[in-house]
Amino acid sequence: MLELKGITKKFGGKTILDNIDLTVEDGKILTIVGPSGAGKTTLLRCISGLASVDAGQFLLDGKAFDPATNRDNAAVIGVVFQDYQLFPNLTVRQNVTLAPTMVLKQAKQDANEEADRLLTQLNLRDKADLFPYELSGGQKQRVAIVRALAMHPKLLCYDEPTSALDPDLRREVQQIIVKLRDEGITQIVVTHDIPFAEAIADQMLRVEPKD
């Protein structure tokens, strides 16, 4: 369970996130919606440790932790970026296994087996040896999801997962997110796409721009 208490973030005197309290239950989907500039992505960046907060506290399973400095195996947060940010110099399989072998010290063979299992699950088995430039947008996104999952995250965050997808692919990513929830993965989805958010959400947080 992830709890946020009084999370506040300022940029140059302007308050972007003002005292946000939030609880995400294990195995649930939280969607964060709101117009551009409301701080959705900033909130996600704070949760995933890419931005520091000015005040407030994060609790994971009741224990305080700082996402910005957290490098502890016990509390991993995975991120699927809006533009995926796959590593262009590595194949799909290498993208997935890089962190498990280098960070989690998995044996290469174990990492490969798990990568292939996850890739199969997301319909990417035949893409394992391709490079990112050879993939479509939807395929890249699924690789990004697999890459995050291979690190066994407690929590998986998505930044605008539907922004670059056509309606068919939008349904597909919706199915993937729901399926992952059924497997017990906690997920946070930032989106401006309200119908999509409503379709997947167990819980919804609306953020509004601050004046």
Partner: peptide, 24 residues
Amino acid sequence: GQYESARVLRLTNWQTLRKIVIPQ
């Protein structure tokens, strides 16, 4: 974004440099 995506995968700076940045 390449650095950030390496960071959320918890690669160290040196690993990021060696495996992702320098080849590119």
